[in-house]
């Protein structure tokens, strides 16, 4: 079985999520657990799909397209929880999330199809992630009540990781098909493989640290500020 180095950070974040599950529930982040299970399963399958033999619906791109389909609802749900919206905002958010999922599904089924990497869907998801994580971070900074330093807030680490991940991968994954077709290389390695470990490290280490912070009681984190 082949496992990339960055996948260990994904395993780590899943392990920490299991250990800190109670804390995640307190912060309404429990959906991270199924999301990380899906991500880990898909990443392991994606890295070892050749070992499974040639199956049309199990090509590398088909697997990552499935990831887009399965991970996105969880990510949108989690971001909705972290936004702490008012009822009218929640309605708008649900509408946007529904439209986003509809576009991804239509792209998967009819436009780009299940066997070509769905770059349009990915660009849409990453733009939405950038916008929503910026909103969440702004809300954290602009909130009225006095809370501990942002460094001690799990939402900060989750969204900082998501923001940086989405900003890097917007270009790299958006051009993934192009880079593959034109064999764009860096130091003898495909540019995709050369750059992708970095945003993955940032994202999953950010998640892991946020999960650990969820375990610290709120009162204690307030006192330590």
């Amino acid at each position: 079985m082949h496992i990339h180095l960055y996948q260990y950070t994904q395993f780590l974040s899943l392990l920490v999520a299991i250990l800190c599950y109670e804390g995640l529930c307190k912060y309404k982040l429990s959906a991270f657990l199924p999301m990380l299970v899906i991500v880990n399963l898909i990443e392991v399958t994606g890295a070892n799909y050749r070992a499974l033999g040639y199956i049309p619906w199990l090509s590398n791109h088909a697997i990552y397209n499935l990831n887009l389909l399965l991970e996105t609802p969880f990510r949108l749900y989690l971001m909705g929880q972290m936004l702490r919206m008012r009822s009218n905002e929640r309605l708008t958010f649900r509408g946007i999330a529904f439209l986003c999922m509809l576009v991804i599904l239509l792209n998967y089924l009819f436009l780009q199809g299940p066997f070509v990497f769905n770059t349009f869907s990915l660009i849409l998801i990453q733009i939405l992630t950038i916008v929503l994580s910026c909103f969440i971070l702004l809300r954290l900074a602009l909130r009225e009540d006095i809370r501990p330093n942002l460094w001690q807030d799990p939402y900060f680490w989750v969204n900082a990781g998501l923001l940086l991940f989405a900003l890097i991968t917007l270009v790299i994954l958006g051009l993934q098909q192009y880079m593959q077709d034109h064999k764009v290389m860096l130091g003898g390695k495909s540019l995709y493989k050369a750059i992708m470990p970095l945003p993955n490290f940032i994202l999953y280490l950010g998640y892991s640290y946020a999960f650990i912070l969820c375990r610290i009681p709120k009162a204690r984190s307030l006192l330590s500020s």
Partner: peptide
């Protein structure tokens, strides 16, 4: 390759700057 890396670095820089400002 250079342009892709440059754009990625610029975006990363903007992201980090935003986080520092927050």
């Amino acid at each position: 390759v250079v342009i892709i890396i440059a754009i990625t670095i610029v975006l990363l820089f903007i992201g980090i700057l935003f986080l520092v400002m927050i």
